[in-house]
């Protein structure tokens, strides 16, 4: 592992457990000539909730998009369950067990709720399993069960977020990545959505990567956190430690 650029802020090596489900090594990503990620390394332990925090343009969304195979990596490796997934197509990566709820949700507004969920199970050939998964999603989000044939574009923002998460769960991910799930939602809804995220992690043993502007919330729910700044990891550690870190408190938690 290459040491992070800022040695002063280097994470203590014992902070993160070994045997990660996902490991990113020295990942570099460019948009044209602009470097979006400058050699980041992350380790996501199985069963954990890990959050990426940082300002706009720090590289959080780029990290998720690269893991999902939407952007090619210029250098580095992404190991999922020990296997390098760099260069795989996005749909192949979903098939391996990594699912993303993208920023802005990107539900299919022209399809019904049920059709959206079924698209999440596009690669599942067994109808019986699709029915099981559908039931599990409906248990998690009873609001969706009430309106399977509603056109998804007419759902409220909170319902659309539930649908986006439900759709991602339909592919039975081992790793679920959520990009700004609180974006544009009322505080009460945000709390409800975060409760569901915690429940998915607890009940289905799904490992979760959470990208979130609201660092307070993100560090509260997560086990580990990484702080990104202009394409580099500048801090990493247990979320409880990060919340006490003066640098984090000042820059991201709004406490001086």
């Amino acid at each position: 592992m290459t040491p992070p650029a800022s040695t002063a802020a280097a994470p203590p090596p014992h902070a993160l457990p070994a045997d990660p489900l996902l490991e990113i090594r020295d990942l570099t990503v460019h948009y044209g000539v602009i470097a979006a990620l400058r050699g980041i390394s992350l380790s996501i332990p199985a069963g954990a909730i890990v959050t990426l925090i940082g300002a706009n343009g720090a590289g959080k969304t780029t990290t998720l998009r690269t893991i999902s195979g939407l952007i090619p990596a210029r250098r580095g490796a992404i190991l999922f369950a020990g296997r390098n997934i760099v260069g795989q197509r996005p749909d192949q990566i979903v098939a391996l067990g990594i699912s993303q709820v993208p920023e802005g949700r990107l539900i299919f507004a022209n399809l019904t709720v049920l059709e959206n969920l079924r698209m999440g199970a596009f690669r599942q050939p067994r109808r019986a399993l699709i029915a099981d998964d559908l039931d599990r999603v409906y248990q998690l989000f009873p609001r969706l069960r009430e309106r399977p044939s509603q056109i998804a574009g007419t759902l409220s923002g909170g319902e659309q977020q539930m649908l986006a998460i439900g759709r991602a769960l339909m592919s039975r991910p081992r790793l679920l990545m959520l990009d700004e799930p609180s974006l544009g939602l009322a505080p009460l809804l945000v709390a409800a959505i975060f409760e569901k995220i915690a429940a998915i992690n607890r009940d289905q043993k799904t490992t979760i990567i959470l990208v979130e502007q609201n660092a307070n919330l993100a560090l509260e729910i997560s086990d580990f956190g990484y702080v990104l700044e202009t394409g580099r990891v500048i801090l990493a550690g247990r979320s409880t430690d990060l919340r006490r870190n003066p640098q984090v408190r000042q820059a991201y938690l709004g406490v001086s």
Binding site: L70, D91, P102, L106, F108, L111, M119, G120, R123
Partner: peptide
């Protein structure tokens, strides 16, 4: 059908479609 629905999904947003596992 599954493929027909996927056609409509792609027509709405191809990136979202690949992210849910649809083979474009």
């Amino acid at each position: 059908t599954r493929f027909g629905t996927a056609m409509r999904a792609i027509s709405f947003h191809p990136v979202a479609a690949t992210l849910v596992g649809i083979n474009l």
